[in-house]
Amino acid sequence: MDPKVITYYFADDGRIPNHPSLPLILYPGALKEKSDRIESIFNENNWRNSWTNGVFDYHHYHSNAHEVLGVQSGSATLQAGGEQGTALSVQAGDVIVLPAGTGHKRLNASPDFKVVGAYPNGMNYNLRRGEIGERPQALEEIGKVPLPETDPVYGTEGPLIELWKHKERD
């Protein structure tokens, strides 16, 4: 099976660092037929510390963990990569993997929009908003986040493993 993926690279915009080498990965419709099982699929693939909710309506990122978001219901437009980033239209069954440091926010959403979020190995995550004082520590933390051992949707054989394994760290 060759799952469809779309990758996006974002440069540091001076406020939102984004990741220096790893792309955001969008899996359109990857869990469309399994949207009621998103959390258990992530957990089975060792992406844990999961939650179900929406996405904040302000730019934010996690400097100490990668994050996966699986759209459980509804649809939304999310902006990734900061103010100059890309607007992504997502719907139930879509999955987005955000490398540490990658900015994201909700631009709009249907009333029933819900996502499941999770982190490799159940890592704890922080919340950064791109404030000047947090930047030196955030950049240091991003560089220390280990690559995941599994893809949140496809396990040990997933596209994330191949797309991220050859990327050099700054």
Score class of each variant (00 low, 15 high):
residue 4 K to W: 00
residue 4 K to T: 12
residue 7 T to I: 12
residue 11 A to K: 08
residue 15 R to K: 15
residue 16 I to D: 03
residue 19 H to N: 14
residue 20 P to Y: 02
residue 21 S to F: 04
residue 22 L to R: 05
residue 23 P to D: 07
residue 23 P to C: 09
residue 24 L to F: 06
residue 32 K to E: 12
residue 32 K to G: 15
residue 33 E to Q: 15
residue 33 E to Y: 13
residue 35 S to W: 09
residue 37 R to Q: 14
residue 41 I to Y: 01
residue 41 I to D: 03
residue 44 E to Y: 09
residue 45 N to R: 04
residue 46 N to F: 12
residue 46 N to T: 10
residue 48 R to M: 11
residue 48 R to D: 14
residue 52 T to C: 13
residue 53 N to T: 03
residue 62 H to G: 10
residue 70 G to M: 01
residue 74 G to Q: 04
residue 75 S to N: 15
residue 76 A to W: 00
residue 79 Q to W: 03
residue 82 G to R: 06
residue 84 Q to R: 15
residue 86 T to E: 15
residue 89 S to R: 03
residue 89 S to D: 02
residue 90 V to K: 02
residue 94 D to E: 04
residue 97 V to D: 03
residue 97 V to P: 06
residue 105 K to G: 06
residue 106 R to C: 09
residue 107 L to D: 00
residue 110 S to F: 05
residue 111 P to R: 08
residue 111 P to A: 07
residue 117 G to M: 07
residue 119 Y to V: 07
residue 119 Y to E: 08
residue 122 G to R: 14
residue 128 R to I: 00
residue 128 R to D: 12
residue 133 G to E: 06
residue 134 E to S: 15
residue 136 P to F: 09
residue 137 Q to M: 07
residue 143 G to S: 13
residue 143 G to H: 12
residue 144 K to F: 11
residue 150 T to Y: 15
residue 150 T to Q: 13
residue 154 Y to R: 04
residue 156 T to F: 10
residue 157 E to R: 11
residue 158 G to Q: 03
residue 159 P to N: 14
residue 159 P to Y: 08
residue 163 L to S: 05
residue 166 H to I: 04
residue 168 E to L: 14
